[in-house]
Every structure is written in C-alpha cells, then in structure tokens.
Simulated assay, not measured.
Amino acid sequence: MTTAIAKKQNGNPSVSFGNVVDNLFQNSLRRFFDDNFWETDTPLATGKIPVNVRETEQQYEMDVIAPGCSKEDFSVNIQDNLLTISFNHKEDKKEQDQKAGWVRNEYLQRSFSRTFTLDDTVDVTKINAAYTNGILRLTLPKNEKAKKFSRNIEIK
C-alpha cells in the first residue's frame, strides 16, 4: 500500500512533479483533439472570456473580447435584472473518398456564457449591442434617475 502525503505551504497544497506531468499531458492531449495542439490555450477554448466595463456619465459600456466569432452565434438576453451574454457555435465537417474507402467526420462546438446583475440605474429598454473586429460591445444607457443632476437653489 502506498500513501501520498501532500505538504501544505501557506494553506495551499504543494505542487508535485507528478501533478505537473499529469497537467502537462492532459492539457496537451486536450489541445491535440481540439485542433489547437500548437497554440496556447485561447480564452474561447477555456471559457474564460474577458469583459471590460466602463462607466461614463450617460451610460455603461461592456466589451466582450471574442475574436474569431460570428455575430450570428451570439445571444444577449435580459430577464428581470440579469443580463446574459452567450455564444454557441456548431460546425460539421464531412470528407470522404469512396475510391480510397475512407470517411472523416469532424464536429466542432464552441460556447461560453457570462451573466451580469444590473441595478436600477440601467435603462434596459435602450440597451444595444454590436460585434466588430472581434469585440462585442454593449451599450447600457443610464436612466434619468442615475444621471448626475446639479442646480443652484435660490435662497429666499
């Protein structure tokens, strides 16, 4: 019977040589079957899609960084106060050579989903989205109650 003891440093388990080799092999094997063997892990392949958010006086702007995608594969939905941005792409490739007696079928599916909670400062009826140069940009206008207001009050 063999017992493995993992030493903890600062509350985290230590990394063993076996774990490093296992992770290296599993990641390389997964990339090989995903046709990305020679590429590093892409955000779309790992499901970790970066989103940049900016606030201006009039609106919020969200940039979903997703190069190589098609705008037809995106879906943007609002339900109650949840904004969900999702992407789903399916592709079938079929090749055959009846004389040589071979058939090759490949199926590719890429997908991701991100959900954000909206507060009552967003005018959900005026949200719009556009996909250009690998970036899905959403514009979320603020409603009147969220916009800064200033005025001088006359003292009587």
Rank of each mutant, 00 (worst) to 15 (best):
K8M: 02
D41L: 14
G18I: 07
I85Y: 12
V122A: 03
Q59W: 04
N88Y: 15
V124D: 10
N105I: 08
G68R: 01
S113A: 08
K148I: 06
K99I: 05
E61H: 09
P67H: 04
Y60H: 08
S28K: 04
Q79P: 01
A6N: 13
F33C: 00
L108C: 01
S70C: 08
I65G: 05
V20K: 05
A100E: 14
E57Y: 10
S86L: 03
W38M: 05
S111Q: 14
V76Q: 12
R54K: 14
D123Y: 12
D41Y: 09
Q59P: 14
I127Q: 06
D80C: 02
W102D: 01
I49V: 14
K99W: 09
V124S: 12
N52I: 12
D63Y: 11
P50Q: 07
T84I: 01
I155H: 14
M62E: 05
I49W: 09
T42R: 07
I127E: 09
G11H: 02
Q98S: 13
K7P: 09
S150V: 09
A130T: 07
L140R: 00
S75T: 13
K142E: 05
T56K: 01
D41V: 10
T46H: 04
S16R: 09
T40E: 15
I127A: 06
E61F: 12
T3E: 14
E154G: 09
D97H: 02
N19C: 15
K126H: 11
R30F: 12
V103I: 11
R30V: 07
D22F: 15
R30S: 15
N77T: 11
E72G: 03
K7R: 03
Q9T: 15
S86R: 03
D73C: 07
V103F: 11
S111D: 14
M1Y: 13
L138S: 04
A45M: 01
V20P: 02
P50M: 02
D97V: 05
R151V: 03
E55A: 03
N133Q: 06
T115C: 13
E95A: 11
D73W: 06
S14P: 07
Q59N: 15
T139V: 08
S75C: 04
V76E: 09
V21A: 14
D120R: 08
K142F: 05
V20H: 03
L83C: 04
I127F: 08
K148H: 09
S86T: 07
L82C: 04
N88R: 13
D80H: 10
T139D: 07
F112Q: 11
